[in-house]
Amino acid sequence: MISYDFEYYRPDTYEGAVKLFHQLNNESKNPLYYSGGTEIVTNARKNVIKTGAIIDIKAIPEGNLLRETEDAILLGANLTLNEIIEGSNFPLLNNVIRKIADHTVRNRLTLGGNICGRLAYREAILPLLTTEAKMVVAGENGLKSMSVGEIFDKRLKLQKGEILLQVEIPKKDTELPYYHERKEKQGEIDYPLVHVVALKKEERIKAAFTGICAFPFRSPEIEEILNDKNLSFEERAKKVVDKLPSNSRDDVFASKDFREFLMERSIIHTLKNLEGGI
């Protein structure tokens, strides 16, 4: 049960939503955009999230689109993970998000929610990072489309009041060879200790990671190592772990050491699968 009150709004347009956000913000109501709600409702119960107003963005039509154009797959950020799994034609994304939470939760949990939420794993961003997807963001000045690399650094760098509305994935990249590996503490329904997502484009491996650090990332330096064919898979794996962008996570789910152990193994598997040989 949530013990405190908040206002609830369900705008029909993104313009309306953004305007409302700023208005509520000016009234010091600390508004929150809300899509699937799974994270907000549970954290509000624990008083971890406090808000005076919820702006439910599920009625915004652009956020619910699932469309393929000639050269892109366009996914509304309000689509639930299961809607994407059932409707989208990007196997890597589908396989990755299939690991998030559990099937029932995925009937509510949305793409945008997973990427913009508080939980740091944000696994749905990994295939977007590797395919260099475009993120369509609604703000006070209307829509803008940015490459994920420009706007994602540990988290999505939205300005206050901005909404992630859609993602646009280059279609040709959705057909590339890929590999992903996710490790959990014990059972599958759990947070990832390590999740490696990689694809091979023009003989180069592109990879994104989460679980291992406190945030998801893709790193040019690490990709250099991954693609350094002068090194064995094992050497590359070790080197990657040395070059992580932050300390490895060390928490109730796993120690830093074990995560790094798993990370090395997942990298070796990734290389075996995408580079072959051995």
Partner: peptide, 16 residues
């Protein structure tokens, strides 16, 4: 205690 809910204290699930 760092795992005081069923998110972090896991019991066996279906299929396991």
């Amino acid at each position: 205690v760092l795992n005081n809910d069923l998110r972090s204290f896991k019991i066996m699930r279906y299929g396991e």
